[in-house]
Structures are given as C-alpha cells and as structure tokens.
Amino acid sequence: MSLETVVEDVEDEARARAEEIREQAEAEADEIVADAEADAERIREERLTEAESQIDQEREQTLSSAKLEAKQERLGARRDVLEDVRDDVEAAIAGLDGDDRRELTEALLDASLAEFDDDEDVAVYTRAEDVELLEELVADRNAEVDGEVDCLGGVVAESDTSRVRVNNTFDSVLESVWDDELKNISERLFDQ
C-alpha cells in the first residue's frame, strides 16, 4: 500500500466522517427548528386560547354590568313610582273632609282612649285644621285637646299619669299599612 492510497483512504474516511457530522448537524438543526416551530405553535395556541378566554370573560363582565345597571334603573323607576303613589295616597288622606274625616278621626280617638284608664286625664293632639273637629269629638269623653301636631290627621293621645303616648295619626296608620302591603302594592303595579 502506497502512501497515496493511505492518504486517499484517510481523506475518504475524513470526508465520510465530515459528511456524517454534517448530516447529523443538519438532523439536529432540523429537530431544533421543528421543536422551535412546535413551541411557537403551542405558544400561539395558548395565547389565542388566553385571548379568547379573556374576551369571553370581559364580555360576561360587561353583560353582567349592563344587566345590573338595567336592574338598578328598573328598581329606581319602581321606587319613584311607589313614592308617587305614596304621595298621592297622602294627598288623598290629607284631602279627606266632612263625614269621612269625622268618622276616621272618631274611630282613631276611640282606639286611642281605650289605651288609658277611665280616670286618667288624657291630652289629645291633631293637625291644626282638625282642632275644632277634635274639640267636638272629645266634648263627652275624658280627654282634652291640648295642641297641634304635624300630621295628615288623626290623633295623638298622652297622659301624664300613665306616661303613655298613643300615636293614632293617619300618618302612623298609613305607615303601618304601607309596610304591610308594600309587596302586594308592588306586585299589582308591576305585574310580577
């Protein structure tokens, strides 16, 4: 074997080894590129999923906020209507006159006086416009009109002896009925 043959064999081996290294490097590079592309696709999919999830969440939050705001506006409108109804009822009560006012005031006076012993001196109060009416009603009872009170009508009675105060004004009756019947009133007005 000549030196030339040995050199050629070494060169062939070196070329073969270089080709093998190059192919291996290309395979590794292809694998790295494929892994990088797969990672990039996975990251893109994750970001897309996150973005869609965030969009859905923001959509739900916006929708919930809009529903809440609409509900609050509806409740506010209902509250306004109920306040208007209450104002109308108060105006109607304040506007009662004649026999209706007399009968109601007398019934409230009798109910108030029933809370006291017969021997007690009872002071009664009413609105300024009803003082004369109340004076007529207490004429044959153990009570005396002792002044005025700010109300729609009716009677406030009290006794120093028993330290009892009975509020039977139209206002207090309306408040009690209003509280008891508010749900029914609301249902009738708003067909719930």
Rank of each mutant, 00 (worst) to 15 (best):
residue 22 R to M: 07
residue 61 Q to Y: 12
residue 144 E to R: 14
residue 170 F to G: 02
residue 167 N to T: 09
residue 37 E to Q: 15
residue 145 V to A: 01
residue 136 E to G: 08
residue 67 K to C: 03
residue 53 S to W: 08
residue 80 D to K: 09
residue 161 T to S: 13
residue 107 A to C: 01
residue 187 E to Q: 15
residue 53 S to E: 15
residue 150 D to K: 12
residue 110 D to T: 07
residue 168 N to H: 11
residue 48 L to C: 09
residue 105 T to L: 00
residue 56 D to S: 07
residue 186 S to N: 15
residue 129 E to M: 10
residue 20 E to N: 07
residue 55 I to G: 06
residue 74 R to P: 00
residue 46 E to C: 05
residue 22 R to F: 09
residue 42 R to K: 14
residue 144 E to K: 13
residue 66 A to G: 11
residue 22 R to L: 13
residue 116 F to V: 04
residue 120 E to W: 03
residue 150 D to T: 15
residue 122 V to Q: 05
residue 105 T to K: 00
residue 87 D to A: 11
residue 50 E to P: 05
residue 55 I to E: 13
residue 86 R to L: 13
residue 146 D to P: 02
residue 164 V to A: 08
residue 113 L to G: 03
residue 74 R to D: 09
residue 60 E to F: 03
residue 87 D to W: 00
residue 111 A to N: 07
residue 51 A to W: 10
residue 165 R to A: 08
residue 36 A to W: 08
residue 87 D to T: 06
residue 126 T to S: 15
residue 31 E to P: 04
residue 56 D to R: 15
residue 67 K to M: 10
residue 174 L to V: 03
residue 140 D to T: 09
residue 9 D to C: 07
residue 158 E to P: 04
residue 47 R to S: 08
residue 92 A to W: 02
residue 29 A to K: 08
residue 1 M to D: 06
residue 35 D to R: 15
residue 132 E to T: 12
residue 89 V to W: 00
residue 185 I to C: 08
residue 188 R to W: 11
residue 48 L to Y: 15
residue 176 S to V: 09
residue 82 L to F: 05
residue 21 I to W: 12
residue 49 T to A: 15
residue 86 R to Q: 12
residue 2 S to A: 12
residue 64 S to T: 10
residue 45 E to K: 15
residue 192 Q to V: 14
residue 103 E to M: 00
residue 142 N to R: 13
residue 5 T to D: 14
residue 23 E to M: 06
residue 8 E to D: 12
residue 129 E to V: 12
residue 62 T to S: 10
residue 159 S to H: 00
residue 20 E to D: 10
residue 134 L to G: 04
residue 32 I to G: 00
residue 97 D to M: 00
residue 4 E to C: 07
residue 97 D to N: 01
residue 10 V to T: 07
residue 80 D to Q: 12
residue 124 V to W: 01
residue 51 A to I: 09
residue 89 V to R: 01
residue 185 I to Q: 08
residue 172 S to F: 05
residue 187 E to H: 13
residue 67 K to V: 14
residue 25 A to I: 11
residue 166 V to Y: 00
residue 49 T to G: 13
residue 168 N to K: 01
